[in-house]
């Protein structure tokens, strides 16, 4: 049976939890045992939002350092911060675009460059794919679909135990009808960008 520990990280308001739940439903529909964990509370106040999805029979809904088969990073700095969770040979699929934390906005701290993620994970991760999720989501119709762009990318590069077609079905089945089209577009753009990124 496919077993996978997937770690999600992002910033409040990015749809991290929505994406987690969509993947959990996809796993259930595929007949896979699933458990998922979220931390609520400060999510609305611009803090870090982390969640987990464990597929294939795990009982725990949390992931310890070095255990994540996949890191899905909805924001670049948070992807970097989460790298210690990654298992050797795991996948990192992340958003290459930044949401500046307050210290950076105020000019007190420096935002790390994109290369920091690539260099840290080099030789440890099987694959690191970073794509501009927010820009691609805007291209699809709304920046709010950036989470779906990332899911499309993750499925296309083989990081998830699901295909892009599985996710397409879930979007059609579980999202509000008026959100389906834009999210399908976002999913496809994410998948395309990931494949292009892998080829490069």
């Amino acid at each position: 049976m496919t077993r996978a520990r997937i770690f999600f990280t992002g910033v409040g308001g990015q749809g991290t939890l929505t994406a987690t739940t969509l993947l959990a439903r996809t796993a259930l529909d595929a007949g896979l045992p699933v458990t998922s964990g979220e931390i609520h509370g400060m999510a609305q106040r611009g803090g870090v939002v982390e969640s987990t999805l464990l597929v294939g029979g795990y009982k725990s809904a949390i992931i310890a350092p070095g255990e994540a088969d996949v890191i899905l990073g909805f924001e670049l700095l948070e992807t970097l911060r989460a790298l210690p969770m990654l298992k050797r040979g795991g996948f990192v699929v992340g958003n290459s675009e930044a949401l500046q934390p307050v210290g950076v906005c105020l000019g007190r701290e420096c935002y790390p460059p994109l290369e920091a993620v690539l260099e840290t994970a080099k030789g440890f991760a099987a694959q690191v794919v970073l794509i501009p999720c927010i820009s691609l989501a805007e291209q699809a119709g709304t920046a709010k679909a950036a989470n779906t762009v990332l899911l499309g990318a993750a499925a296309a590069c083989g990081a998830l135990p699901f295909s892009v077609a599985d996710l397409t079905r879930s979007i059609e089945k579980y999202l509000k009808p008026k959100l389906v089209d834009v999210n399908l577009k976002a999913l496809a753009l994410g998948a395309e960008a990931a494949k292009a990124g892998q080829a490069a």
């Binding site: 910033v11 803090g47 350092p65 790298l83 210690p84 050797r88 790390p112 840290t120």
Partner: peptide, 15 residues
Amino acid sequence: DALTVPADLPRRPPN
């Protein structure tokens, strides 16, 4: 067996 990242990454406290 896990990666390490700099301890001084910009924090993202709730605001």
